[in-house]
Amino acid sequence: MNKKTRQLQCRQKGRSLTKVLIVLVVLIVCFALFGPFFVPLVGDPHKTEAFPFDGGGPLNMGYDYLGRPVAAQLLIGGRELLIAAFLTAVLSQVTGMTCGLIMAVLRKRTKILRFLLDMMLIIPMSLSTLVIYNHAGSSLYATIPIATFFTLPFTSRYYAGNAEPLLRTGFYEQAMVAGDSVPLALIREIIPVLFRPILTDLGMSMISAVYLMSTVSFLGIANNNNSFLWPTMVMQNLSGLALNPYATLMPIFAIVWLTIPLNILIDQFSNRRRK
């Protein structure tokens, strides 16, 4: 088999894998977003219908620590986590990109900003998130600005690093010479070139947000009404792992399904760009 045939086969395998990953990501997103509409078909997620950790039940997934159907909870448990993670990712990108571009343009004049962002890096993210979350009245969506704030040092440096070389390019200079203001030139010339890095970091931010929010819920800091259900299910049903493993393992599987295919897809995307 010559090199060309091997390369073609590798490319075809890569494309097939990408398609599979896209399908997986779309499936889990649809499951999380539209699952609540199918809840009436499997039962009431808030009603005790059987003994704790009993088997059987809707889709044979059994019941949780309060005798509520696991399948129904699984269907409603992902939407808020997905939306919150997505909003966090978008907000994180917008603020990070804005900071990063300011740092790239103004450079030495942003010493104080860079210093403050560097100071944030030494604060342990998960611990601080838990403390602030607790003091913020344990609001579910308080995790969005908290997570955005703590990822700012990373995203701003990422975009500053990506944008700085582009500010020395001919096309950016041409825009300035032609009369575009700095913000306009950044939006029209620099951001389109950063499209793939933005997409890559958006995906990574979303995964980080899912993990951060799951940590907050999993550690049980939140009460039942103010937490994301999938990670809370893991924490609450851990004691009944031997009796009904589905109550613990299914939400873990759902969180993994939400993050890992997306992670690999982002890698595929980045690798294809490098080639």
Binding site: T169, G170, F171
Partner: peptide, 12 residues
């Protein structure tokens, strides 16, 4: 400029 390749935005 001297280098024409970089004087146009590569994605536009």
């Amino acid at each position: 400029p001297q280098d024409p390749a970089t004087s146009f935005n590569p994605v536009i």
